[in-house]
Write a protein that binds this DNA or RNA. Structure first.
Lengths: 208, 208
DNA sequence: CAAAATTAATCAATCGTTTGATTAAATTCC
DNA sequence: GGAATTTAATCAAACGATTGATTAATTTTG
């Protein structure tokens, strides 16, 4: 007999993530999750306690994945600019590897309810922010970067990437591109990285 | 006698917008809207046909407000850079004048459901995008701007502003600032405008 | 067989919407 | 101008449907 070792627990997580991304947390019912995952409705509460439990589990898994992915960028031989470029590469790759989740994250972030989630996301984001902040500030201090509004530069770097992911396909990145198409995604990734590297290089290091 | 001319219709719109911004469309019930507005529940359907009708009405009003606010930036005497700077000023002012609504707009934009709303928002956004696109492309053509990835530059301009509005107060713009405080908002507005002007000037016009 | 996993059936609560009745103002009629 | 009529606005109550959650029984597993 084909044992069909399908982990129902995992199936629920995957179905829920897909649905949460597509229709939002409130817009997704437990019955939809059950149907999509092929599991019985009661299994959701059996494994995760509640609908919110599924959501929290998804966020925890993803955020843990993010954390494990981060590399310490602190080789002495590397310039501030090179450090920044590596962070940009990592950030773009990370976010564009799962645009749907990043969309959902931002959606949840913009809701004042569910403070537990808010804090989780905030903490995950602030790590990146502090990393960039330190690199730019160091660069300014040692004279290799221009005096700039550091927080605004960070908003530009993060905002650019988020905009590419969130803005509608037909409007933003390029009329004929689709982030769901792996080939297109690769191209957009490279364009985003090239653009942000160029932008930061010119803006931070050009002598006036 | 104080006639207390309270327009219930308007009260519903205002209450609904507030609640939609705070807790999202799905997360807001018609009973909440009724309570918050002081109107009877039935009034929502009486005036707007449905809950979604209220939402559509809110979007239409706001988007109409945006459209009427736009100025034609086409004086011959003005350089491409100056045109771009005026668009940036207008865009920042518009969005930061109502951050909550802009948050909600982005939230709804990231949901694939409600295609009517999606298209409405998309159209409203694409107008700005085309405006910026034309200005930058013209600047490149007449040699006053560097050859850049136009779409990515647009993503940077729009993304920066969106990021300032959406990212959590305690993380992003500046630790002690609050967009709900009019004084802080003014400062952030000016910083955002100054930053984007400086960024675009350096990036688009610096000779390599 | 005992524990874990899964099921169908059901729960109270809440959802968006509709109903029929009531009020007050505006309009028409004589 | 005053009575009769129509209209718009508002209300409490209830509608059927759906929500997230739970139960108790059943099946699978080790």
């Amino acid at each position: 007999m084909k044992t069909e070792k399908i982990d129902k627990r995992q199936a629920i997580i995957e179905a829920a993530e897909k649905l949460f991304c597509e229709t939002g947390y409130e817009g997704t019912s437990t019955r939809q999750i059950a149907k999509e995952s092929g599991a019985n409705m009661a299994m959701i509460n059996y494994y995760f306690g509640s609908k919110e439990g599924v959501f929290v589990e998804i966020m925890n898994e993803r955020i843990a994945g993010f954390a494990s992915q981060l590399k310490i960028i602190n080789e002495d031989k590397i310039s501030s600019l090179e450090k920044l470029h590596r962070v940009i590469e990592g950030y773009v790759n990370r976010i564009l590897s799962n645009p749907a989740f990043h969309k959902m994250m931002h959606r949840e972030l913009s809701l004042t309810q569910r403070p537990e989630m808010y804090d989780k996301i905030k903490d995950a984001m602030s790590h990146n922010m502090l990393l960039i902040d330190r690199i730019i500030t160091d660069g300014i201090d040692d004279g290799s970067f221009n005096q700039v509004d550091v927080r605004m530069v960070i908003a530009t770097i993060m905002g650019t990437i988020t905009n590419i992911v969130i803005a509608p396909n037909k409007v933003m990145p390029c009329s004929n591109f689709d982030l769901n198409n792996p080939k297109d995604k690769k191209i957009i990734k490279e364009r985003a990285i090239a653009h942000l590297k160029d932008l930061t290089t010119v803006y931070l290091t050009t002598k006036k």
